[in-house]
Design a protein around this nucleic acid. Structure first.
Lengths: 237, 237
DNA sequence: CCGTTGACAGCACGATCGTTCGTGTAGTAA
DNA sequence: TTACTACACGAACGATCGTGCTGTCAACGG
């Protein structure tokens, strides 16, 4: 069991413990997304990683600490998989679309076994006061705000009618993303994403300025390709 | 041949045990909506009802049976609180609006402690195969279909443009309801319902025929009152 | 080369999990 | 009365929960 990697681990200072910790969280985050943060068990997690309960437990001081670490890890993954790619697009409408697209893509690729981690854990903890709930609420708020902010920025660029209520728009776009996650995971039906993408483009077209319409012209051409692709594997998974 | 009296007494006997069973489920359904169907504990439930674990357990034969009974009970409540009231309205656009309104109202009144029972349990069980999951999926499908059916009926009445994709419309309306539930429960913010109602009316206006616009004229007048009322207690709960 | 330290295992704890079983009791049927 | 049934209870099962305490072994600084 004690691997050859002993030599390699000398490279970094805090390696051994931190590496294990990362491995624990990597596994934990996926189990938690499927079984829930409360349903996740320290014993079960230890078994999956071929370690002892106590050895694993020592890395965190309590189950709540473990849960907080898991949520933080999930945020990192979300940032890596959704936020970072989308933020490579130029600001404004283009980035807003990229964000929503990356979000749907992350749900569709099942980056987490149980669908979008934050939707699941938000619902699990919404009537369970404590630090975990607060952290989840904060992160959920951030994502919602990020959507609204980008919509507002698109307004300053003249891509979106300035009379559009961006809070309302963000609510609706976010709703479509959530519904896609819910629909896909309970019905195992990829058409969820077609519906969501259709709805998103529709929402944006409503607040269109000429400048936006030009942008959407390109985008809807791109969308047709996507829709066609999805239609082929309609019943999958 | 069984005598009539025998049947009657049998019914009476059923009534006694059945009454307890109903009381159990009544309490169980609320706990489950907050703690989850898996988080619900037979011992805890028994304590709350001041009965013994074994006495309670005897009414079901396993935890899964209890969970199935809870879901069925939740459906009954949903029908009583949402479906029945809405189905008093005349068919078509009016009933569709009544359904969505009753749904939002049921969420806002916290008929279940943990928000909409079916959204929570769908997400809890979506990666947990078994009878419970199947039942939840079936009931979720029913509600979604009911929305779509009513939209289609509104088309036959000429209230909704016949070119509207009713599956898409149902997806979006359902998404707004779900988002309201999610938003309200994680942020404790009643503005969720304003956003949802605004979105719903907007969605319907998009597919409007002259006949629909006439109907919406009345409805949006009614809505202003609601919105004003809600605004006053914006920060509540 | 020795001593300190950090990462883990082993073991055990009290509590609680779902479940089983034998028993008591109240109410009905004969 | 007697016999039977529906219903609820208490005790106990093995398993597993989260959480401590103690020991061990490898790595590292002096």
């Amino acid at each position: 069991m004690k691997a050859v990697s002993e030599i390699r681990t000398q490279q970094k200072k805090e390696t051994r413990g931190a590496k294990t910790r990362h491995e624990i969280l990597q596994a934990a985050v996926h189990i938690a997304s499927a079984e829930g943060l409360e349903g996740l068990t320290i014993g079960g997690l230890a078994d999956e990683l071929h370690m002892s309960k106590s050895g694993l437990f020592a890395h965190f001081g309590s189950k709540e600490e473990l849960q907080l670490a898991i949520v933080a890890k999930a945020r990192d993954i979300f940032v890596r998989e959704v936020v970072d790619p989308a933020f490579k697009s130029e600001r404004g409408l283009v980035r807003l679309l990229a964000m929503l697209d990356a979000w749907l893509d992350y749900v569709g690729r099942s980056v987490f076994r149980g669908g979008c981690f934050f939707m699941a854990s938000a619902i699990e903890f919404d009537s369970r006061p404590g630090q975990v709930r607060d952290l989840i609420a904060e992160l959920s708020r951030s994502w919602l705000d990020a959507i609204e902010n980008e919509a507002r920025y698109a307004q300053t660029l003249g891509q979106l009618d300035s009379r559009v209520d961006t809070a309302q728009l963000a609510f609706e776009l976010h709703a479509l993303g959530h519904e896609a996650n819910w629909y896909y995971n309970i019905f195992q039906d990829k058409r969820a994403f077609d519906h969501a993408r259709t709805g998103i483009l529709d929402r944006l077209r409503q607040g269109a300025t000429p400048s936006l319409l030009k942008l959407l012209g390109e985008k809807s051409a791109a969308r047709k390709t996507i829709t066609k692709r999805k239609t082929k594997r309609k019943e999958s998974r």
